[in-house]
Each structure stands twice: as C-alpha cells, then as structure tokens.
Amino acid sequence: MELSQEQVRHIAKLARLGLSDDEVKKFSTQLTNILQYVEILSEVDTSSVEATNQVTGLKNVMREDAVNGDWTTRDELLGCSELPVERDQIRVKPAIE
C-alpha cells in the first residue's frame, strides 16, 4: 500500500488541513510506512468476530433533554471564540459566494 502525494493532498482536503509542499512529500513517505505496518492485520482471520465499539457493556445511556444551566453560560461559551461575536453569533467569513 502506497500513499501518493496526490492522495495525501486529497485526504488533507477532506480533513480541511492545510499542508505545505514539504509536508505533503514527507507525509507521503511516513503515512505509507504506517499503512504498511498496519497491514499486519490482514493476516488475522476475523470472519466470525464481532467488532468492539465499547468495552464496559453500556447500552443506550439516556438523560433528560433539558438545558443544564449550572455548567456554563452562553456568554462564557461564546467567549471561547477568538472571532467577533454579534447578537449571540460568531461572525465568520462567507461560506458561499
């Protein structure tokens, strides 16, 4: 399994991750090495094995659908943003032309 520089650029695009040309080159080699290493899993027969998504046996943990105001306030959470806040909203760049 080899990850070409073109594929690296494609994955970076999916992840919304800006990469320099040097990073693309380096990651192409390093990610190829990692993917070659994990190929060891193909030698394991898992045809009759279920996937493990959780380990402690919990199922459908529910809670009341209620606002819990004792934790943080709206203003405190908006204050985590470094962008300007107007009328309880974060002002961002245009998403559509």
Binding site: V38, V44, T46, V49, E50, A51, T52, N53, V55
Partner: peptide
C-alpha cells in the same frame, strides 16, 4: 478494510 477490521481485532485482544 481498515477501521472495521481493527475493531474486530480489538475484540480478539479483549
């Protein structure tokens, strides 16, 4: 090929 396979191998480890 990757993710689901890995979750099954996780079962074997457990």
């Amino acid at each position: 090929a990757f993710y689901n396979k890995a979750l099954k191998v996780r079962t074997l480890i457990k």
